[in-house]
Simulated assay, not measured.
Amino acid sequence: MANLTAKQTRELQDAFNLFDSDHSGKISRKELRKVLNALSIQVDETELAQLMKQMDSNNSGDIEFDEFCQAMGQIFFKKHTRQELEAAFQKFDTDGSGYITPNELSHIMARMGRNMKKSEIEAMIKSMDTTGDGKISLDEFVDMCNQ
């Protein structure tokens, strides 16, 4: 596994849990496709197979948490440029308002196969919302990503 701090491991576990929509402890090919589609990342079957092969080091057909950490650790904790973060932010800010609203976050989570309660969405927003306005600005998003 990548050399990660306890905090980084927890963050990767949270990300892994978002991918693992059936809570099986593994990410299947179908779940990986669902997440990529939710993020508007289009891949064909060949590209999806290559991605699975790269991540599935034990050839089980699924991606276990340790494989996910190995594959995503360096990518996940890499410092991104503001331009890269703006592009990612725009995927969530579907109405172009300059904010990620609870409704937009709920929609993207549903597209990932995670139908979350309103209280869960509100808790996610609150954890990132430093101004207390109930939505996530680009600056809040950038700050959260670069912690």
Rank of each mutant, 00 (worst) to 15 (best):
M72Q: 10
S137H: 08
G96S: 04
E104Y: 04
L36Q: 06
V35M: 11
G132Q: 05
S57R: 10
D133N: 15
Q42S: 14
L105N: 06
T131N: 14
F65C: 00
F16N: 05
S106T: 10
N146G: 04
K117T: 15
M116Y: 08
R82K: 15
P102Y: 03
F68H: 00
H23R: 11
S60T: 04
E86A: 14
A49I: 03
T101F: 00
G96W: 05
D133F: 00
D14P: 03
E64W: 01
F19G: 06
T130N: 10
K7N: 14
K135D: 04
R111A: 13
G98M: 08
A123L: 10
D62G: 01
D133L: 05
K34Y: 12
G61Q: 00
D44G: 15
Q83S: 15
K91S: 07
V35I: 14
R114F: 08
V35G: 07
Q70R: 12
S24R: 01
F77G: 05
D22I: 09
G61M: 01
S60A: 01
P102D: 06
D22Q: 07
L18N: 05
Q147F: 06
H107A: 14
I75M: 15
G25E: 00
K91P: 03
N146A: 10
P102N: 08
C69Q: 02
M52V: 07
H23M: 03
E11K: 15
S127W: 02
E120C: 07
S97A: 03
E140V: 07
F16L: 06
T130G: 10
A15V: 12
H107S: 11
E140T: 10
T46I: 14
Q90I: 05
N58C: 03
I136M: 08
I136N: 01
R29N: 10
Q90P: 04
M1Y: 03
M116K: 13
K118Q: 15
S28F: 02
E120K: 04
T9N: 05
E140A: 11
Q70L: 12
L32Q: 08
K53V: 02
A49C: 06
L39T: 06
G25P: 00
F92M: 04
E86C: 12
A88H: 06
S40R: 14
I136F: 02
T9L: 12
E64L: 01
V142A: 07
N17Y: 06
T46R: 15
K118S: 13
D143G: 12
G25H: 01
L51C: 07
M124L: 14
M128V: 15
D143T: 14
I100P: 02
T81D: 14
S97H: 05
G25N: 01
Q70D: 12
L105S: 06
Q8M: 13
